[in-house]
């Protein structure tokens, strides 16, 4: 529970000082109306906040709220004072013995919805208002409620209450994430995807242009020098020669980083079949020449 300091008490006190005036009324309005005769007795409620907040925890349900306040009657004592709530579902009330340390949930289980205090005079009587967590509204603006105090010989006195549910930080965080961060991430992600797509598209276009412009050279390379290189006996000679030639012919430049790494790894591992397959994939126009260079490898 959280309570409002200073000004939050003001309407309550005014109401108690003049039992006929509703709490929501301003002090100015209150002073203009006629005060009740002191002989009838004035109900005084202290310690009751006008705003009652339920703070929802990060995990699990919110605990019920127990608000302890005091009631007294100045002037003529009241043989019977009836206290109940309006617009607070399942609220419970219990008069507390002085120095009671009863747990809040105990109150909720056993207390009635309204209570009668007998022989209420200037001596403060402690009362507990139990509000279960589900009574707090989901709406951001909260829910208006009332504490109603009825004395037989005078009109009922009302104590205005505002019930608020305080959402936990993470809910705010989720709202913030959903509202601000998620669109930003989505925008960044789409930018990254688009950039990657554009880059890939540009890369593919430039690779295609390279293949078109160097069609004769590539046909010559795959039909001759590539074949001689595949036929080299030692893995060292093969790797050294092929890397040098792929670089010199500009073929490595047509591969993206992933393909380049895969091709280099295959060349260095002397996996001639895999190299052939990668090159067929990249240079479909030269697939026949590449296959001829790998007669026993059964390329795709």
């Amino acid at each position: 529970m959280s309570s409002r300091p200073a000004g939050a008490w003001t309407p309550g006190l005014l109401a108690l000082m003049c039992a006929w005036i509703p709490c929501a009324q301003s002090a100015e309005t209150a002073t203009k109306k006629s005060l009740p005769p002191l002989e009838q007795g004035v109900i005084v409620v202290t310690g009751l906040p006008s705003v009652i907040e339920s703070r929802v925890p990060y995990l699990g349900d919110a605990p019920p709220q127990c608000i302890d306040f005091s009631v007294s009657v100045i002037g003529k004592s009241a043989p019977e004072l009836h206290i109940t709530t309006v617009a607070v579902a399942n609220a419970r009330l219990r008069e507390l013995p002085s120095n009671s340390t009863e747990a809040c949930n105990i109150t909720g289980k056993s207390a009635p919805r309204s209570i009668f205090l007998h022989d209420v005079n200037a001596t403060e009587r402690r009362v507990r208002l139990f509000i279960p967590s589900e009574s707090f509204p989901r709406r951001a603006q909260g829910e208006a409620a009332k504490l109603l105090l009825v004395k037989l010989d005078s009109p009922p006195s009302e104590q205005a209450l505002l019930l608020l549910r305080q959402n936990p930080e993470w809910q705010n965080l989720i709202v913030w994430l959903a509202g601000v961060v998620a669109p930003l991430i989505a925008a960044a992600l789409s930018y990254v995807i688009k950039t990657a797509y554009d880059r890939r598209k540009a890369h593919n276009e430039s690779a295609e242009a390279f293949r078109r412009q160097h069609a004769t050279d590539l046909a010559d390379f795959f039909g001759n020098l590539y074949k001689s290189t595949v036929e080299l006996e030692t893995p060292d000679e093969y790797a050294k020669t092929l890397e040098r030639e792929l670089e010199a012919k500009g073929i490595l430049g047509t591969l993206d980083a992933g393909q380049l790494d895969r091709l280099r790894a295959a060349v260095r591992a002397n996996d001639r079949r895999l190299v052939g397959n990668i090159l067929i994939h990249k240079f479909p126009e030269n697939s026949e020449a590449i296959r001829r260079a790998h007669p026993g490898d059964r390329l795709r």
Binding site: N224, L225, S228, T229, L232, E237, T241, E245
Partner: peptide
């Protein structure tokens, strides 16, 4: 000293 070049030139 380059066997691949020599072989390719020979083949061609």
């Amino acid at each position: 000293p380059d066997i691949a070049y020599a072989k390719t030139a020979y083949n061609s």
